[in-house]
């Protein structure tokens, strides 16, 4: 039980740092204005190479988008922008 409390305490500490560090308005605005292309370049590469847009059709990108939202734990806003970019660039 002590270990669970320790882990949760550490998790709360991480969350607290997140909230404090995100209080920078400039950083928040930059993040909100990111395009689908930027998000595609910055997020897919966290696990694997950046996928080439022509690799799949529009419909397939939608399916992959939902799969990757879950697998990579991305936000709905991020995945919508990425899929929209891939559907225009393929």
């Amino acid at each position: 039980m002590k270990k669970i409390i320790l882990i949760f305490t550490l998790s709360l500490a991480v969350a607290a740092i997140a909230i404090i560090s995100s209080s920078c308005t400039a950083q928040r605005e930059i993040a909100a204005q990111k395009s689908g292309a930027e998000l595609w370049a910055q997020n897919c590469i966290r696990c694997h190479n950046i996928p080439s847009p022509p690799s799949y059709t529009d419909v397939q990108w939608e399916t992959i988008g939902l799969h990757m939202r879950e697998r990579a734990n991305m936000t709905s806003g991020q995945i919508k922008k990425i899929v929209a970019f891939l559907q225009t660039a393929n």
């Binding site: 969350a15 997140a18 909230i19 560090s21 995100s22 209080s23 920078c24 400039a26 950083q27 928040r28 605005e29 930059i30 993040a31 909100a32 879950e70 734990n73 991305m74 936000t75 806003g77 991020q78």
Partner: peptide, 15 residues
Amino acid sequence: FRGAAPIGGTHINYS
């Protein structure tokens, strides 16, 4: 149950 959320310019994910 899992998800992710923006916190300002940063992101947090949870499960």
